[in-house]
Design a protein around this nucleic acid. Structure first.
Lengths: 224, 224
DNA sequence: TTATTGATCAAACGTTTGTTTGATGTATGA
DNA sequence: TCATACATCAAACAAACGTTTGATCAATAA
């Protein structure tokens, strides 16, 4: 009879597991998967090395668990920027606000995002099955928004470039945090600074879309 | 068996060195420093493992050599986009043309760029001493260009955000090659597609700067 | 010729890697 | 009380790592 007993009163186990997860996240995000050894993680978490295999089977299992940490990855009310009643600039500003949200939250959330973006450069394993379900929706949502405001029923190359540019600005800011904080730290200083950043990027993106719109109507008029 | 030339049975030595460099570059760019073993490199280059220590002292030495491969890194006529006589949009388009140039060239050049951008995420060692001398000039050149066209003598936060956005679009396209080629392959298909991309990004960036200019003159008038 | 030099090799080096083992301590349930 | 389940530990494991060794082969210079 080895039915799972209730060990709720026992705090030791879950506590160690949590510590391992937290330290692993930090180290993985900081130095990458390969450069982080299980012994380093164990030492940082102040647990025995074998605790990692004990709780997560192996290093890869620990990474997978960290990578899709539910409480950190789950972002409840996202894609609010696609709301149809929003004017273009407001929608884009909200997009960047949502995108920069993790930067405002704790280190852990940022580290998870860092992990995910790191997978872009080193597409091995989880990338295809996980990011595919995160990047593509993001991309599709932005495409839909821009198509709607350009009165285009399909996304041609120009629109897809536009989508890429809008998203690229955000991704770059996220991935280049370290550099930006070195060169122009005041831009990411605090929540207010990030909000200003989102507002500016929203304006810029809006200007890009409007430029494309003018170009399109112009072409339509001359070709008609 | 064909009759062997004078130096056929005995290879030059420089040849092996070159092969190691080429394969190391490819593997480092593909999988990162830590995940690439010297044995893999040796096998790919079809040389003995010890040849790496023989020619480059150690793995780190090989990496350093690859990282600053003179013939690949040297980019002769750069920063041409800052030429004062260029109008804004043309200047920005030239910026993106220059930025995307490596994408047109051989795989080796792209891999070197990939290596350099990878150092952004994993700032260990060479980063500080090398990238500092590459990113900052790029950034400064773009800042100067935008300041000039905005009639601003100093770069305030808004201008620096603008600079960041313009550069970010380009960096994102470079780093996200794999994803972009998966989702919208036609945007990076060939040289002509890349040129169209640079032209579009130039227009978009120009629209952003002009938007900021309008905003500025508007504020100046109301505040004056 | 012989001596020397540089390139190449298989083999082994000592470490570090991720993982497993078996023992020990400890709280819980009967 | 005893017995079971669980958490933790030091130690050991095989495999892979970067690196070194010493021999071998080919070419050059004396």
């Amino acid at each position: 009879m080895t039915s799972p007993p209730q060990t709720a009163s026992r705090t030791d186990g879950a506590e160690a597991r949590q510590k391992i997860l937290l330290c692993a996240l930090k180290l993985f995000a900081e130095k990458g998967y390969a450069k982080t050894s299980v012994r380093q993680i164990a030492q940082a978490a102040q647990v025995n090395v074998s605790a990692i295999s004990y709780y997560f089977t192996d290093k890869a299992g620990l990474y997978r668990t960290v990578f899709s940490w539910p409480s950190l990855v789950a972002r409840p009310c996202e894609y609010g920027f696609t709301a149809p009643e929003l004017p273009l600039e407001a929608a884009l500003q909200q997009f960047y606000m949502e995108f920069f949200q993790p930067l405002k939250m704790g280190e852990a959330v940022q580290d998870v995002m860092k992990l995910r973006y790191r997978e872009m450069l080193e597409p091995t394993g989880i990338w295809e099955e996980e990011i595919e379900n995160e990047i593509k929706p993001h991309h599709a949502a932005m495409t839909e928004l821009i198509c709607r405001h350009l009165d285009a029923r399909e996304a041609d190359d120009a629109i897809q470039s536009l989508v890429l540019a809008c998203i690229g600005m955000a991704v770059h800011l996220f991935m280049g945090q370290n550099i930006i904080r070195t060169m122009t730290p005041q831009l990411l200083k605090d929540h207010a600074a990030l909000d200003r950043m989102a507002a500016r990027y929203g304006r810029y993106a809006s200007a890009m879309v409007l430029d494309e719109k003018i170009r399109r109507t112009g072409i339509q008029e001359t070709s008609a």
